[in-house]
Design a protein around this nucleic acid. Structure first.
Lengths: 341, 341
DNA sequence: AGTATTCATGTAAACGCTTCCAAATATTGT
DNA sequence: ACAATATTTGGAAGCGTTTACATGAATACT
């Protein structure tokens, strides 16, 4: 189609440098057995000729694609953006490329389709918050296809995954709110099909228990991590005869929406109601009041997931399990000491 | 490395189906010259064997990669997310894959590096809001490499680009605010190196002119499309002796931050100050008050950019210029009639 | 029926690289 | 100086496709 005749191949480089194309290939692949002097000459020639190795050919011959696939549900919230930043950085260092697949796109197809399709296209796959993880995991494990999960709490199966200490983070956050004097805390959950969401809820409950505060079912609103849930959940709480004095949402997006709901009722954050989130997406520090939240090291999660995937690629037999990165409470201005009514 | 010996190739399929591998290739490529009966048999065999054509080999042999590259500055705001949704949809239909490059990743390298690198990896490139467009454009035009720009107002060079009617959108929006009675309108610009940002500013000015409202330089805050600018800009306005009664931000992200700034001062949106944005990202309808904004058809822009790129791929000689999609005012709850003080 | 014409299929030669093996060259020890 | 060894290089054989060309079968025409 638009085939460039003037494309430069290793053969051209070899001719120019006065060596065989085999030697050029060795230089490209950093093979040890090349005389430094020869290597330099070849490198110089490559530079001069503006040579770029053809990825497809390398893949075809070498059996590797130097590309990894990333499967994400969507890109709307900045949450994924941070993770990608981490993956991207790691990938860049290793000379890998990133192929992006959105879950939506393959929603109609069965999960096996993805790993099937992806097989040969990418060397491995990173899945962020897959909606039906066990389907994927089964299919990929069976195929022995390298993959890593991000932010998914395995539902029993033992597979490489990167997450954070969701339980502990929620526990600490709740504790923090309680220390501020809050006893009635509204909790907005994430999508409870995901382990991470369940863990946050459990951490919340545990902190109540530890502090001998009774758990009230009505103060839990079941959300899905979507912005709207934050608004709806908070509204529900605020409409109660005895509304909570603090709202803890399972992610920042919902927390921000919760703040909106609070303000819409003429109440102030944090003076009247404290609001806390989870994730620490970039926006968290930019909204006003800035959001107190539980920081997940999203970028680092991306980095580590990539490193683990590389490990697996290098040694497919090594077993990797779940890695948990520590969460951390970031105190900003959306939470305050309970004011005596 | 992890080479699968059991990989199924067209040769296996051919043997199974009792045809030559050439025929299988023809079936894959929907070549007309295959007896329907044979085609069906081959397809059946492919299905049964779970065959997936090797992308690398196809690319190497065919000179195409069936992959397009997308170059984006970041993924934080949902703005890009919408565009990707459109691209993704179109790509899926055509059986193409998406390779994602972030500007940041190659920030250190010169722009030429990108097109160089990308050459051979992808058949074409879609650039969203490139920061130094002319570098790219020069390099790619020279290489005759297929590309499309999204949301970039050419700085003179004639190249395929998809944008929206920024001027008109800003003009209409400003007009709308004026019709509501606002005479002092604060305007927060985008990154003025981008044509889109300039156009929005110009549309704003033109509307003032049309309505015989004097333009006041102090009521323009120069931002960069970043959330923080919305906050800072709005704060600047609100600290004026005679603050504006409406704030028009050049994108939604800044508009939302502006609303935060307004509320932080104990003022209400829209009762005290009307706030208007630009883009209509998904969050715009979810914040409270929901944001009145100028809708850019982001997803459609992604779709059309992809289609144009396909066009160019099919016919490299055809000249494509800038396409402008209409913007549309979406009236929600962040704007209201000016209340007489 | 015999030949021209179309349609269906098989085959070989790329595509640009990696990798293995063998050959050439350099290095070391005696 | 010579063999033994280590280092460097050259070249062939793929990798799994596409595509141009050749062949064979079927159909249409005279």
């Amino acid at each position: 189609m638009n085939k460039r005749k003037d494309k430069i191949t290793i053969v051209e480089v070899a001719a120019e440098a006065g060596v065989s194309f085999g030697t050029v290939s060795r230089v490209i692949n950093n093979d040890v057995h090349v005389k430094p002097q020869t290597r330099e000459r070849v490198l110089e020639t490559m530079r001069r000729l503006n040579f770029v190795a053809n990825r497809q050919a390398r893949s075809l011959a070498g059996g590797r694609t130097n590309t990894i696939g990333l499967l994400v549900p969507d890109l709307g919230t900045g949450y994924i953006g941070e993770i990608i930043r981490g993956i991207d950085a790691e990938l860049g260092d290793a000379g890998y490329d990133l192929m992006l697949y959105t879950t939506h796109r393959t929603a109609t197809k069965e999960a096996g389709y993805v790993s099937n399709l992806v097989q040969g296209m990418v060397d491995g796959l990173i899945l962020v918050l897959p909606r039906n993880p066990s389907d994927y995991i089964g299919s990929m494990t069976q195929r022995n296809f390298p993959f890593v999960l991000i932010d998914h709490q395995g539902t029993g199966e033992d597979c490489p995954a990167i997450g954070s200490t969701n339980w502990q983070g929620a526990f600490n956050a709740t504790n923090y709110l309680i220390k501020l004097g809050h006893k009635r805390i509204g909790f907005i959950t994430g999508w409870l099909d995901l382990g991470a969401a369940v863990d946050r809820l459990e951490g919340f409950k545990a902190a109540l228990r530890t502090n001998k505060i009774p758990f009230i079912q009505d103060l839990v609103y079941e959300g899905t991590f979507a912005q709207l849930d934050g608004y709806t959940g908070a509204s529900r709480f605020l409409d109660m005869k005895k509304p909570p004095t603090a709202i803890f949402a399972s992610n920042d997006v919902m927390a921000m929406a919760a703040m909106d709901a609070v303000r819409e009722r003429g109440l102030r954050v944090p003076e009247d109601i404290s609001v806390m989130g989870f994730d620490d997406i970039p926006q968290a520090s930019l909204v006003r009041p800035s959001l107190t939240t539980v920081r997940q090291p999203l970028e680092q999660m991306g980095r580590i997931a990539t490193q683990v995937l590389f490990d697996i690629l290098k040694n497919p037999n090594l077993k990797h399990n779940r890695i948990e990165l520590p969460t951390e409470i970031i105190i900003r201005n959306s939470t305050a000491k309970l004011r005596k009514a």
